[in-house]
């Protein structure tokens, strides 16, 4: 239930068995079925979710159109951090693309762990630093690389997403229409 969570945790910050047991007390196991929401726009985001198994997406809806900002597969974390940290209503939806098993850290558990577990603070700092770096890289890529190159980078970096997520969602994530993505894929296939 917490295997991958603690595997990834230990890769960042090694824990003793006792520390692991202490942290486990504060974790909430949660199962979502495909298409079920973890978060809906307008609600306050009260959890940081770690994916043990399955897949989710985070997206905004504008004029009825979905804009995907993040996918999360096994070993990844997902949340609306703005809402989580400020207590303001969330601006994103998060739902399950497959039947999914999560490990949730609630806001209350997060605050308590920060107070009582110094290694949790280190883990969170690394997690948020990595999320910031990934966001910065994505922004740089979006404003500086040609679209074909962005797509190639994406497929090389996230082959699992390409396999498991429908093309129209990948197009949404890249800010393209499905037709444009289809043309790019055809063009790249012809090059081979």
């Amino acid at each position: 239930m917490y295997n991958l969570f603690f595997q990834k945790y230990n890769e960042k910050v090694p824990l003793s068995d006792e520390e692991q047991e202490q942290i486990k007390k504060y974790l909430t196991p949660k199962k979502l079925r495909k298409k079920q929401y973890l978060l809906q726009e307008g609600d306050v985001c009260k959890v940081i979710a770690f994916v043990e198994n399955g897949a989710l997406r985070e997206y905004a809806v504008e004029n009825g159109k979905e804009h995907i900002i993040q996918f999360a597969l096994e070993g990844w974390t997902i949340s609306d951090l703005f809402s989580f940290f400020t207590g303001e209503p969330a601006t994103y939806h998060i739902d399950a693309l497959e039947d999914t098993e999560l490990v949730l850290i609630t806001k209350d558990a997060h605050e308590e762990l920060l107070k009582t577990q110094p290694k949790y603070e280190t883990y969170m700092r690394l997690l948020i630093t990595n999320a910031y770096i990934a966001l910065q890289r994505r922004l740089t890529s979006n404003i500086s690389l040609p679209i074909e190159e962005r797509y190639i980078n994406f497929t090389e970096k996230y082959p699992d997403i390409v396999q498991r997520v429908p093309q129209h969602m990948i197009a949404s994530y890249m800010g393209l229409t499905p037709e444009t993505l289809s043309r790019i894929r055809k063009k790249l296939a012809n090059r081979k």
Binding site: Y26, L27, T28, P29, L104
Partner: peptide
């Protein structure tokens, strides 16, 4: 249910 009821 002990394990899955954690924090609930």
């Amino acid at each position: 249910i002990q394990e899955v009821a954690n924090q609930k």
